[in-house]
């Protein structure tokens, strides 16, 4: 993809992200932040490709760690958010 197209995607997605959160009740600040924290594990997509393409062993090792960290971020993030939200529902 050309840099220009990528920057365009970046701008459009930023605008969409801006639009989507409005008047969040303060009760939900924590779980919403936690949910978005989980989404930031999206970098796993980059780490998978980079690791698969890496030729040198030390780069493969760095990539392996990157995949692990991103997955911890994703799985842990969503699980923690689920636990928080369950607590809200039980009350």
């Amino acid at each position: 993809m050309s840099p220009l197209a990528l920057i365009l995607i970046f701008v459009v997605a930023t605008a969409a992200g801006y639009k989507v959160i409005r008047d969040v009740p303060s009760l939900l600040h924590t779980p919403l932040m936690s949910g978005m924290n989980a989404l930031s594990g999206v970098t796993i997509l980059g780490s998978l490709v980079a690791t698969a393409l890496a030729a040198a062993t030390h780069n493969k090792a760095l990539g392996f760690i990157a995949i692990m960290l991103a997955t911890v971020n994703l799985v842990g993030g969503f699980a923690v958010t689920e636990r928080m939200l369950k607590m809200f529902r039980e009350r």
């Binding site: 990528l6 997605a13 930023t14 992200g17 959160i21 978005m36 997509l45 980059g46």
Partner: peptide, 17 residues
Amino acid sequence: PLLVSVGAIVGAAGIIL
């Protein structure tokens, strides 16, 4: 593009929050 768009969404929404 998928990494760019999701990352940007989280980045922008995070700033708003």
